[in-house]
Design a protein around this nucleic acid. Sequence first.
RNA 1: GGGCCCGUAGCUCAGCGGUAGAGCAACGGACUUUUAAUCCGAUGGUCGCGGGUUCGAUCCCCGCCGGGCCCCCCA
Length: 489
Amino acid sequence: MPEEQSTSRLEEIRAGRIAKVAKLRALGIDPYPTTFEGREPIADAREQPIDASVRVAGRIVLWRRHGGSTFAQLRDESGQLQIHLRKDVVGEERYELIKLLDVGDFLGVAGKLFTTKTGELTVGVEEFSILTKALLPLPEKWHGLTDPEIIVRKRHLAMIADATNADVLKQRAEFVRRMRAFLDGEGFIEVATPVLESIPGGADAEPFITHHNALDTDFYLRISLELAHKRLIVGGLERVYEIGRVFRNEGLGREHLQDYDLLEFYWAYADLEALKRLVERFYSSIIEGTFGTLKITYGDDELDFTPPWPEADYFELFRGIDVDLHQYPTAEALLPVAQKLGIKEAVSGMGRGRLIDVIYKRKIRPALIRPQFLVGHPVDISPLAKRDSADSSRVQRLQVLMAGSEVGNGFAELNDPLDQRERFEEQQRLREAGDKEAQRLDEEFLEALEYGMPPTAGFGVSIERFFMYLTNSPTIRDVVAFPLTRPLE
RNA sequence: GGGCCCGUAGCUCAGCGGUAGAGCAACGGACUUUUAAUCCGAUGGUCGCGGGUUCGAUCCCCGCCGGGCCCCCCA
């Protein structure tokens, strides 16, 4: 006697639904018709008066059969509406078809609005037609999906189970739309620059490597947009911006992705003060436009973006932890200070910039909660920014901070080609000393600067990072449709 | 890359050395205004994968795979 074939529940359900598809076809009904003429969004239908005829379509998300009468919930992108099917209205033969329907299927219905005795707005269905037969069952109606792995790997399913997944994506679209609208309104033009680069530049990060077959050459995926934009400024454009995907070969974490959308803009003949005022107006516009307020809640914190924002000075903050950066002009001098502060990742061989950066990120940044500018960074951590004319160890730079995190970075762009070359050479030395994220010397960029770049202010912000904080999302993956996952098998 | 935790039915979860359970969904039936509808019935499992210990492993041990949180890196 042969072993009974083990069939999983899922396979049984799927087989049962495929059989229903066949039954529908046998009855001359197409389970996958092309359209449903004259449909209106459910949200619009809900605005209609009682007794109005409506024609709506959507996914069946709830299904309650009571013999000769059946209630169901239909959901489209705009909303959800109850429908009521009655044997005596649609006819016995049509009513039998509901046995071939399942939660998850798409249905189109026409009928008149009424209110049930419990007060729920409902379509009294006169006609209905199946629009799409689903083969796989939906998650459980009460608890929905909670498995974080499925939520990330099968976002489409998570969106069906919980529409707030889709709401975040819609809100992000609005946020980005307002970014463009603001910058367009300020006379910036949107440009597109290459994703594949010979030398990745403009940021401290490890790149991804890819290969071009026809040229038989390796290329890097860009880590920022900066250098290409400055070449456009050299070329004569005065206000440019781009919203583009960048790629950084780094670890994953609650506020880190390996690919994300960076907004950068570059503004010729503007200085740091002008940039601050523009950034305040820009953030006010996109935040208030998208969320209807400038007061944002993140975790336990109330964050108010109403300008003008307070300003914190980089060197002052260090003095606040009893470190005068001017007293430690070299890495060797600074290292014992970092170690005394208990920063375990401070080791010999690190450059001065890295040491300063790690002290800042460990001891200072976590306390910068309210929206504010951070200004006056050391030149060591800002190889592309113009020096402060009053103190050449510092640069004309601003960062936007909120909730202990960076949500914006800009500076007066370094346009002295000889100084830029020296900064790159210093970065080069750091690379050779083992700093994988030190920047690379880009001859083409240096040559462009030698043709002359007007005084320029530039600014960049990670859209996902910023948006994560604005939406009070616990992790950055929550604001991305399909975050990277390890492949299965 | 390191530390801790998790993986049982399509989904949400119990069980934790002795023949694998519940709710929802699905299947058959009753029910023409329900709201997680209700009621009756019958199903459904390589207990992530591979080794080991044991008379016996979903359970204990080791390894692997996938995931989460915290570090590291970074916006």
